[in-house]
Design a protein around this nucleic acid. Structure first.
Lengths: 210, 210
DNA sequence: CGGTACGTTGTGGTC
DNA sequence: GACCACAGCGTACCG
């Protein structure tokens, strides 16, 4: 099998890697698992971690001589110097199915959307928007009542201080309108620091879970 | 070779995957590349992408019967139903070297630290701190002068609106002190929106590159 | 194409 | 273990 022509492969090789692009890195010579998929993504794996040591999407092999393989994508480059290929496996055609996810942020958004009065008491909203566009980005849930607006930032995981700041950004984006703005972060739980930060800014937490 | 006992392996298999943990997902039956490293991390790869379809760190194989393999880590679980193993490869001992990175945020921080007066004119700082701790998190660079403080948030990539917000958070954290606070984001460039947002909040951009 | 936000973010560091 | 922030974040989506 020739890795310069085969459509998708995986090898174990004694090699070293240089990456040059958004950053620059050198991976010392060693024994790595290299995967080159049929979408031209390449990744170099070491003994541990889910994440590869080095990687490149849309990586076109532009040269290979004396064991030096050069892959490029736009302004990025990976140079693999292969001293020895120990084993080799053709990948053939792998499936392109993607996992069907549940417990996403979208589910929590829908849950609040469909049960608004359960989460926001006495709000008398006229309309509720999902992904309401502002100059500073989209608001997950935006409820409009007479002279009052409700902004909800939803997270599928525990709320952090940064999430509260994301909420504050959206509040800022619609603050110049002639209405009272009430801000909420919603999620399964909230970190201690975020909760403290929330309270100092008179914002609110909605507990919502799957 | 027996994948229930071997220390690290990679297979191509006709299989389906269920993940249950922080979220829940189903990956339809198909042909996938599965990697089980010697650190017990497992990842299931499809035809494309750097990122795996499913994955789990510290995944202990707790049962395998009738082709159903169950891996668990704390409250997370991956169940792989294998209908057929098409090829199999022992990984042996891969290297644990990590890429030595250059062009990191740290480099830019040091560059400003060592050439402070080049980037902040007429500041007359008495002391400069790196990773200065506040209640709301660590400030990349914190310069102290008489009655004036300088806060710099550094990024290795283009500055975004979020980065500006991160800066604002730190300003808030030290705002109650008896001094003027001047805020900066520093990076190779800044997005249009971030620049606009910066200006409306009277903050500043420092161009710093590798 | 840039800009923004989600993600089972992963991973490292600090408290 | 909780929490925080970086990362070549990757990836999707919307302008």
């Amino acid at each position: 099998m020739d890795i310069t022509t085969t459509n998708g492969w995986s090898i174990i090789a004694d090699c070293s890697v240089v990456y040059d692009g958004r950053a620059y890195s050198i991976l010392d010579r060693g024994r790595y698992l290299i995967i080159y998929k049929s979408d031209n993504s390449i990744s170099i794996h070491g003994s541990d971690f889910i994440s590869p040591r080095n990687y490149l999407s849309n990586a076109k092999l532009i040269s290979s001589s004396n064991g030096v393989f050069v892959f490029v994508c736009k302004k990025e480059k990976i140079i693999i110097t292969i001293y020895k290929i120990e084993s080799i496996m053709s990948l053939g055609q792998l499936s392109d199915f993607k996992p069907k996810m549940q417990r996403t942020e979208q589910e929590l958004v829908d849950k609040i959307f469909n049960n608004w009065n359960l989460y926001i008491k006495d709000s008398k909203v006229i309309e509720i928007h999902k992904e309401y566009q502002t100059e500073l980005g989209p608001i997950d849930l935006f409820g409009v009542a007479d002279k009052t607006s409700y902004i909800i930032e939803v997270k599928r995981r525990s709320i952090t201080v940064n999430d509260v700041r994301q909420l504050m950004k959206y509040i800022e984006a619609i603050q110049n309108r002639d209405c009272v703005v009430i801000g909420y972060v919603a999620g399964p739980k909230i970190s201690k620091n975020a909760d403290k930060y929330l309270k100092t800014h008179q914002l609110n937490f909605i507990e919502v879970d799957f």
